[in-house]
Amino acid sequence: MAAAAAAGAGPEMVRGQVFDVGPRYTNLSYIGEGAYGMVCSAYDNVNKVRVAIKKISPFEHQTYCQRTLREIKILLRFRHENIIGINDIIRAPTIEQMKDVYIVQDLMETDLYKLLKTQHLSNDHICYFLYQILRGLKYIHSANVLHRDLKPSNLLLNTTCDLKICDFGLARVADPDHDHTGFLTEYVATRWYRAPEIMLNSKGYTKSIDIWSVGCILAEMLSNRPIFPGKHYLDQLNHILGILGSPSQEDLNCIINLKARNYLLSLPHKNKVPWNRLFPNADSKALDLLDKMLTFNPHKRIEVEQALAHPYLEQYYDPSDEPIAEAPFKFDMELDDLPKEKLKELIFEETARFQPGYRS
């Protein structure tokens, strides 16, 4: 834990890192770190609560700039109880001085990944967590956004079992017609939660990839272990087919990539493993919904509104309290091709509203 900075004593240090967030945020305490930044909790002297502050230093890398800009653009436009918001952003007053960006968010005690390492969940908890994931996802999908990296560590939890989806750095506007060349190379989302079509096709992607990830998360809540822990690309596919069985001819016809289709045709026939054999203690309604989410063919996979209306979630289902976005989200430009200098300018502009004396 960093010592509390005395008023006016300059930035606090946390594990050798400068955290320049005073005077409003003090009493910093280390939480963890990701690929390009550290997260601390801090005391907000204005709202009198502890908050989470993520320090991001992305400006050396085009990919990190892209992810940072995506996350900020999306989260500043989203407003939903099951999606983490941005409360404040701290950065230098000029673009030349801006080396880091500090993002202030609600402090959540833990995440689903940490929880599943230590606790076996009751059916009631599984049901409530799944409902909140789908409630947040309904809003995301209504904005025409794909999260693309749903996994237990991106689901934040607090002691009252509130759940918030975080990390929109890989999110995209849904565009089933656009052929994202190089899709697989830039697709760094965790393999275990990846839909089979991501490994088999490169053309376009749809909201059904997020539903697949939610199915993987439900299976993990039922058993405290990942359902498809593939060691590499082909191993991942083999794990999936080992449980779902061989795809039907109709399902194979959806695979545009001939090499991928021929690979699947070359494999020995596998039978589907019954879900109640894998999860003998699970609620039968939970397994019915799991089956509809972990469907090989993305066109037959359940959609988020149908999933919310499934009998497993009937005690929570309330369409009048499951809000959607006001308007579909649009990125003005494809960020993939922009140089990091341009992305830095866009991050600077996007964060201006939090600067003292800002006038829109």
Results as ranks from 00 to 15, higher is better:
A260P: 09
D167M: 03
Y131N: 15
A5F: 00
Y30K: 04
K330C: 02
F183I: 15
K164M: 08
G242K: 03
P196D: 03
A174C: 10
G136V: 14
S153H: 05
M293K: 14
L155M: 13
F331V: 12
H180R: 04
R67N: 05
I198S: 12
V188I: 13
T110R: 01
A282I: 02
T159E: 11
L150P: 12
I74D: 04
I198P: 03
D162P: 06
P319T: 14
E33S: 00
E96R: 03
S284F: 12
L290W: 08
L137M: 12
K342E: 02
L258A: 08
G10A: 09
G242P: 05
I256F: 14
G22R: 13
S208Q: 07
R50Y: 13
N297I: 15
P58Q: 13
Y64T: 14
A195N: 08
I103N: 14
E303W: 04
L343I: 09
Q66V: 14
L115Q: 14
P280R: 07
N47F: 11
V51R: 09
P176T: 15
L346F: 00
Y128N: 14
L289D: 01
L76V: 00
L218V: 02
G32A: 03
Q132T: 10
K73Q: 08
P226N: 07
E326S: 09
L156E: 08
Y128L: 02
G8C: 07
L290T: 02
K259W: 02
E314C: 04
A189D: 06
L134G: 05
K151D: 03
E345W: 11
K99I: 08
H310F: 04
Y102K: 10
N297W: 05
E350I: 01
V21E: 15
R50M: 15
Y263D: 03
V101F: 07
D321R: 04
F168N: 06
R277E: 11
V39A: 00
D318A: 14
P323Q: 06
K164V: 06
E314F: 01
I133R: 03
A6P: 08
T110A: 13
T206D: 05
A286G: 05
I198T: 01
P356Y: 01
L157T: 08
E33P: 15
P298K: 03
G230S: 12
K164R: 03
E186L: 09
L287P: 00
N257E: 09
L112K: 12
L289N: 05
T159W: 03
C166D: 01
Y193T: 08
T295I: 09
N201A: 09
A195G: 05
G34K: 01
P356F: 02
I84D: 10
H232D: 07
G182H: 06
R191C: 07
D88N: 14
D124Y: 13
K292Q: 03
P11C: 10
K114P: 04
N82P: 04
A42I: 01
D175R: 07
R261F: 05
E12N: 03
M38E: 09
